[in-house]
């Protein structure tokens, strides 16, 4: 077994009826890294999560998880991975401690060992003082901590999380990330998560961008941003098509129309702001200059915005 690779995915496809959710996905995730699957809703992240967490049977392709074949050795994989679901998996009628002890029982811990481990987990996640609270009464942030305690109860080598920040306020989000970074450092746990939040993806070692079931980019956040080029100019105006053509003719640079704006990637953004505003004072309503973001990467790779009309952050 190759100990440096935690997950290797080859030609993985998944269909719901006629709809293709995953389209010949191939990639590999290193042991000990924080890996993010980034994509808009409907990009195929949740399908991928369900397949990797063994919740849903695999249809096509092959996946090796921690050296085990996903199709053949589900049980061995289940023993070594921790899973944190997007929708809560807590029993709301049970207390925090009862929930964690129950999870311990599912993973072969019982009696004193389970109690010790539960106390340890509650201590690590700062919920020891809430041990006897019924989960129904907890805030979203605290519930997510209980979920994390459940997912890590058996000291898995790999932790899978589906949209772990959903519904968390910024404070709860950053304490969750502190915990994830800590277990990665101290226990060398490989952390794989899905998110539709661009700023969250920045915290990863590597990002895979998924769009309609396809892998569109895979790299570290900074290298991904470098592929876009130096700066991004965003222009708004009334006749963008005409403007794009004029810019092309006059300066021989490509301007791309994305939704209601014109985007230009360039290495020397600042000089272009002056040049363009001087050349087309009438056509340009607004022009802005920015360092590339992951959204720019997404646009560059897919030709459309990360958030489609009607989506909301």
């Amino acid at each position: 077994m190759d100990t440096t690779t935690a997950i290797s995915i080859e030609q993985l496809s998944h269909h719901y009826g006629d709809r293709c959710a995953l389209d010949e996905l191939s990639l590999s995730i290193n042991a000990g890294e924080v890996f993010v699957f980034l994509g808009p809703n409907g990009g195929g992240k949740t399908t991928l999560f369900r397949v990797l967490s063994t919740l849903m049977p695999m249809q096509q392709g092959s996946v090796q998880l921690l050296g085990f074949d996903l199709a053949a050795a589900k049980q061995s994989i289940r023993q070594q991975i921790g899973v944190v679901f997007q929708s809560p998996s807590l029993d709301k009628k049970l207390t925090v401690r009862e929930n964690i002890l129950h999870q311990a029982a599912l993973y072969g811990l019982s009696g004193k060992a389970a109690k010790l481990r539960a106390d340890e987990m509650m201590g690590q996640l700062g919920i020891a003082d809430r041990a006897s609270d019924i989960c129904e009464e907890l805030s979203g942030g605290l519930r997510r901590r209980v979920e994390l305690a459940k997912g890590m109860i058996h000291q898995p080598r790999l932790l899978l999380l589906d949209e772990p920040s959903t519904g968390l306020d910024p404070g709860a989000r950053s304490s969750m990330w502190e915990y994830l970074q800590r277990i990665r450092k101290e226990q060398n746990v490989t952390i794989v998560l899905t998110t539709h939040l661009l700023e969250e993806a920045e915290k990863a070692d590597r990002i895979a961008i998924l769009n309609v079931g396809k892998l569109v980019a895979l790299d570290t956040p900074s290298l991904l941003k470098q592929t876009v080029g130096g700066d991004t100019l965003t222009i708004s105006g009334s006749d963008l098509n005409g403007l794009a053509e004029k810019i092309q003719n006059q300066f021989q640079i490509t301007a791309q129309i994305v939704d209601e704006t014109l985007r230009i990637e360039t290495t020397t953004g600042a000089t272009w702001v002056t040049k363009l505003t001087e050349a087309f004072p009438e056509e340009i309503d607004r022009i802005s200059l920015g360092k590339p973001t992951l959204e720019d990467v997404f646009i560059a790779k897919t030709g459309h915005r990360f958030w489609n009309e009607g989506d909301s952050a």
């Binding site: 967490s53 919740l55 929708s87 599912l106």
Partner: peptide
């Protein structure tokens, strides 16, 4: 519906 079952389904039991 409440999500409790999913954790049981991916447990190694």
């Amino acid at each position: 519906k409440e999500g409790f079952l999913q954790a049981v389904l991916v447990a190694p039991i």
